[in-house]
Computed example of a mutant assay.
Amino acid sequence: MGDRLVKHSPLHDPLMIQSSKQYEQEPVKQIDWVATAKTGKLQAKVYERQNLDMFTLMLDLSGPLGNGLHARYEELIQQAAYLVSYLVKEECKVELFINRLDADNKVDHLRMSDGRKQLRLALVRLAWIHESNRFVASKRFGRIIERQKHPHAELIRIDASFLKQMSVG
Rank of each mutant, 00 (worst) to 15 (best):
H152W: 08
S138M: 05
G66I: 12
R116M: 03
L155C: 09
A80V: 00
H150N: 15
K38P: 04
Y73A: 06
N51Y: 06
L155T: 11
N105E: 13
L87Y: 10
H70M: 00
K93W: 12
G40N: 06
L96R: 08
V107Y: 02
L69H: 05
E75Q: 14
E131H: 03
L110I: 02
L96N: 11
A103I: 14
R147C: 04
Y82M: 02
L65N: 15
K117F: 02
C92S: 14
K41L: 13
R120P: 00
L121F: 08
Q118C: 04
V94E: 07
R125H: 10
W128G: 08
Y73N: 07
A137Q: 14
R125D: 08
W33V: 12
L123T: 09
S113R: 10
Q43W: 04
Q43H: 03
G68R: 09
S138P: 10
K41Y: 13
A44L: 03
R120A: 13
L52R: 13
I77M: 06
I98P: 05
E146T: 14
D53H: 03
R100D: 12
I31H: 04
L155I: 12
H130I: 01
E90L: 12
T39G: 01
R134W: 05
L76E: 11
I77L: 13
D32Y: 02
N133A: 13
H150M: 10
P64D: 14
K89P: 01
